[in-house]
Design a protein around this nucleic acid. Structure first.
Lengths: 225, 225
DNA sequence: GTCAAAATTAACCTTGCGTTAACCCAAGTT
DNA sequence: AACTTGGGTTAACGCAAGGTTAATTTTGAC
């Protein structure tokens, strides 16, 4: 998995050290040497995470973060700083940062924290694993408790739709829309697909995961409570 | 905004210190003294964030977190620990934690980090919570004191209408208008719906929340005001 | 063109929501 | 006291939504 970052850091040497290291981890990193530029780039491109140095001339990291949030930019932010007093940290969180890392830090810790944030945002994984159900997109296969399910393409896509919105009710209409697009079968096709999908999922008495919410739709979750 | 946390910590004294402090911040915190119990509680209830001590007998925090993720529990985790080596941290992130805080830590920092994680969740699930009644729009379900109510679509929408205008009287006409639009049933349908809704809300002697204002309509409020 | 897999259809069964009507109760009116 | 009015409670019914099964059509690989 490769991520797309923005590093905001006025110290060019430090910046290139970080960028080079992250490149080894397949994390690609744009660089902005000041806050103004950062805001501009953020408005033009989509980043997974922003790494923000606090101590910068002109516009410091706190202000950049505040400005971002004011502009409605919700990209996760990790603040980097040498200052580790509680006051500084609170100022950071107050400005809307998601994480706060004190220099000197280990690159591996930065990478770990980047991954946590990036994973949350981009649901773009090739595998989806939830409640013992594993969905492998590249292999187009699904497992429950390590037992392979035999699903048809539509069965698989129904499962995917439900799992991606786990714990959310999906209406019949939404399902139909997502599977068939604007025009769809006229009869109980969906019902049959759902039935067969559940049949596969619930082999040997495994608990139901696709719950019906009468009059509302279906929901993928562990227990019906 | 009030959050609902689970603290997993075997040291009961420390636990109650944390819980008491968080209570001041309007953060309500259940307590599990061991990993097993934590997993069980997590499967039964919906928490915004889990605070997980790493160093516990029997099942340590790392294992608890791993187990959670295996089970598909995506609740954000903050690990608390006295161990601050890079290895320990990486083990934590590898197990699927969202944040890692080294003891001793400032309560205010913990609170700040809780809020960051909780906010991210609350952005994903839209809820309305009032007087112990929780309305989850994404799951289209309602709870009172964590007990699930079985409501029909109309029941749910009546509850929603009343809760959105809590402490205001809603006339019958307004209710009918909002539920059925311009043309509506001719008989006592609304009465029956209301009756069934109250029946669900007031199970095991819970105090009435939907009060009748004779000749005016209905009002959602707690008794003592 | 054949064949198997997948999708759709139709028919039927089961569940449960919404509506209705009928009845109950208390308070106010005549 | 009988009647009216606003509201609460209950049971019954019809119908739509959902689930199940089998048969038929479509698709796509060979």
């Amino acid at each position: 998995m490769s991520y797309n970052l923005l590093l905001v850091e006025d110290d060019v040497d430090l910046a290139s050290t970080v960028i080079d290291y992250l490149a080894l981890e397949k994390i690609y990193c744009d660089h902005a040497s000041n806050g103004m530029l950062a805001i501009e780039l953020l408005q033009q491109h989509q980043f997974d995470v922003v790494i923000l140095d606090i101590n910068m001339p002109h516009m410091d990291g706190i202000s950049v973060c505040k400005k971002m949030r004011e502009l409605g930019l919700t990209t996760p932010v990790i603040m980097l700083t040498a200052r580790d007093t509680l006051e500084d940290k609170l100022a950071g969180f107050n400005a809307g940062t998601d994480d706060y890392l004190v220099k000197p830090f280990a690159m591996l810790e930065l990478v770990a924290r980047i991954q946590v944030l990036a994973k949350r945002i981009s649901g773009q994984t090739s595998k989806l694993s939830l409640y013992g159900v594993e969905l492998n997109f590249t292999a187009k296969s699904a497992y429950r408790n390590n037992r392979k399910l035999s699903l048809t393409p539509t069965g698989l896509s129904i499962l995917e739709i439900l799992m991606r919105k786990a714990n959310n009710v999906i209406s019949r209409q939404q399902l139909i829309q997502n599977i068939w697009g604007d025009f769809s079968p006229e009869s109980n096709s969906l019902k049959v697909h759902l039935f067969k999908l559940r049949q596969q999922l619930n082999q040997n008495g495994a608990p139901e995961l696709i719950h019906t919410v009468p009059g509302q739709g279906f929901i993928f979750k562990s227990k019906n409570d």
